[in-house]
Design a protein around this nucleic acid. Structure first.
Lengths: 146, 146
DNA sequence: GCTAGACCCTGTAGCTGCTATAGGGTCAAG
DNA sequence: CTTGACCCTATAGCAGCTACAGGGTCTAGC
């Protein structure tokens, strides 16, 4: 199996596969006489494993750690759980701040309904007021970001 | 006002201020004889404007466009609204995919409650099954990501 | 035999938004 | 005259790719 076929089989771009190899996430495959990479079934599974983790938005470092943990079937799986919990916590934190951000933007968007002159635009006024250090609608009492 | 004072006044790091200047987001300030940058009140406001936009997670390019739009008070503000709407849409999209991701991770996390051997870990089994192309709990019917 | 096009190779630069050095200059207080 | 806080430039690094440049290889069709 050549790199293009692996790319199709896994949905990972060819360039990305080479990149994963360069950073040590994929094992360097054997080569044909012409220098082309040839992959076996193990490589397909490893690549799919990585793709699944990326779909869960895990970092490449975490994925590498996870692959290491997964390769020791007799070990304790608490490391796996810890890794996943950390990632889960990060995702929830990000989700929360994005929720707040969405509310802020919604409030800001409400400041200008119809098109008019820039100098009268409620949205821009908010920006300029905030730049003067005044209170703004989007970042009023109920939210945490500044 | 020197760069350190501007940094304190705006909450933007000194390095970041210099970076903003380098990429053309902040105007190059005048210099003292010793080469130190000196800022006026306009610079403070521009920096605060930028900071506010960053707090709304806008990209530096968008901020630059917005600053350009804001500098023409007689123009039509529809460009401002379009810019904000685009950003708003991006934020909502990201929020939605993060919501899905959170559910996926929660489902996955449920596969392993107590610590045991890696070979028996429900979480890892999910990863391995997915790598084999089988269905996984986290990416079952109800969600869109793969 | 020769060419077009699809595939492969390496190496390097670019993207975003900083952050962190290295290696220097300036200035006021003690 | 030294210490320490501040300032300067220039460059490299982070994540996770993506996109070249500039080559080689292989197959099909003429």
């Amino acid at each position: 199996m050549r790199i293009g076929e692996l790319a199709k089989a896994t949905g990972i771009d060819v360039e990305t596969l080479r990149y994963y190899e360069r950073i040590g996430l994929l094992h360097p495959p054997s080569r044909q006489v012409n220098g082309y990479r040839t992959y076996d079934q193990d490589a397909v599974e490893r690549a799919n494993f990585i793709r699944h983790c990326r779909a869960l938005d895990m970092g490449l470092n975490d994925i590498n750690r996870l692959l290491g943990l997964a390769s020791k079937p007799e070990a304790d799986c608490s490391g796996v759980n810890r890794l996943l919990d950390e990632h889960f916590a990060r995702v929830r934190t990000k989700l929360e701040s994005l929720r707040i951000l969405e509310k802020q933007l919604a409030r800001l968007r409400n400041q200008c309904d119809i098109a008019h002159k820039v100098s009268d635009c409620g949205i821009l006024r908010e920006f300029i007021a905030a730049a003067h250090g005044e209170a703004c609608t989007c970042h009023s009492s109920s939210s945490s970001a500044s």
